[in-house]
């Protein structure tokens, strides 16, 4: 319990820093468009600190098994398994491991965890503390998909109408840069609403970093550690298409190999590669 309180304290610090940053932005920005409103989400709804060795909590996470359709729609090269070789919990860390091996016709295996049908929420603060992998063709992500995502029947919506919030995407060949994006009708696939954030004097595969969003009915704010680096407002979205973010979403954490976003690994890519997740936390107002 102590541990959790300490982390909450750190959260508060981050929020305070965020507030002061926003305060600066407000104070110095000339155009009203650049003013940002930050809502404080402090009510912890659920979290996973991966504190039980060997167990990926089945009340929170489901593991994918397969290659999806056309490599999850992106020509990705990995086969996602539910084996402990690809996803395991030990000493407070969830390890997702991309392995180079022949497996059911794929050249790589890895894992994809999702809270679909288990933990879904509309609005809130979603964040995770992650140490990212590295190398050409390595594509980890921490993202949200609309819970109504499906084939368009029985009240479901096909992508991108179901919406996608990418809290963090990263190319292993660009180890100082992450991307935060929104996909929806009118702004999807190669044309999302997106912004990159580059670490100064550091890189994402050297240590853990916190990736987060705060999502309300009128905007989505993107954070890395204590830096608010982007706000996408409902107005900005509606200039391009339809705001489809007023319904519950679920969380996905995955480590892809290859695919359109990163290209294939090359002979310098070292395997296995690991994505280490210290915690995942979701807050509401």
């Amino acid at each position: 319990m102590d541990k959790k309180n300490k982390k909450s304290m750190r959260m508060t610090t981050i929020l305070l820093k965020t507030f002061s940053l926003v305060g600066l932005l407000i104070a110095f920005s000339c155009t009203p468009d650049e003013t940002q409103v930050v809502t404080e989400f402090q009510d912890l709804v659920f979290y996973d600190e991966f504190d039980t060795d060997g167990l990926i909590n089945p009340d929170i996470w489901g593991l994918s098994d397969g290659t999806g359709t056309d490599g999850w729609g992106n020509n990705e090269l990995q086969y996602y398994t539910d084996r402990t070789e690809n996803a395991s919990v030990r000493k407070g860390i969830l390890t997702i491991k991309a392995v180079e091996e022949d497996y059911s016709g794929a050249a790589y295996t890895s894992a994809r965890l999702s809270t679909k049908g288990l933990k879904e929420q509309k609005y809130g603060r979603f964040e995770a503390r992650i140490k990212l992998p590295t190398g050409q063709g390595i594509w980890p992500a921490f993202w949200l998909l609309g819970a109504n995502n499906g084939d368009g029947t029985n009240g479901t919506e096909i992508w991108p109408n179901s919406g996608e919030i990418d809290i963090m995407e990263y190319r292993g060949q660009a180890p100082t840069i992450i991307h935060g994006s929104l996909h929806g009708p009118g702004y999807s696939a190669a044309n999302p609403i997106t912004k990159s954030y580059a670490l100064e004097n550091d890189r994402f595969d050297n240590d853990f970093h916190i990736f987060g969003i705060e999502w309300t009915a009128s905007y989505i704010n993107y954070y890395v550690d204590d830096v608010l680096y982007n706000q996408i407002t409902r107005e900005q979205v509606e200039e391009k298409g339809v705001w489809v973010f007023d319904q519950p979403f679920f969380i996905i954490i995955n480590l892809a190999v290859g695919g359109n976003f990163v290209g294939a690994p090359n002979n310098e890519t070292v395997f296995p590669q690991t994505m280490l997740v210290d915690y995942v936390k979701v807050y509401k107002k």
Binding site: T134, P175, D202, R203, N206
Partner: peptide, 10 residues
Amino acid sequence: EKLGTLGQPQ
């Protein structure tokens, strides 16, 4: 320089 952006020593 202290770049801080070097990683993955091999």
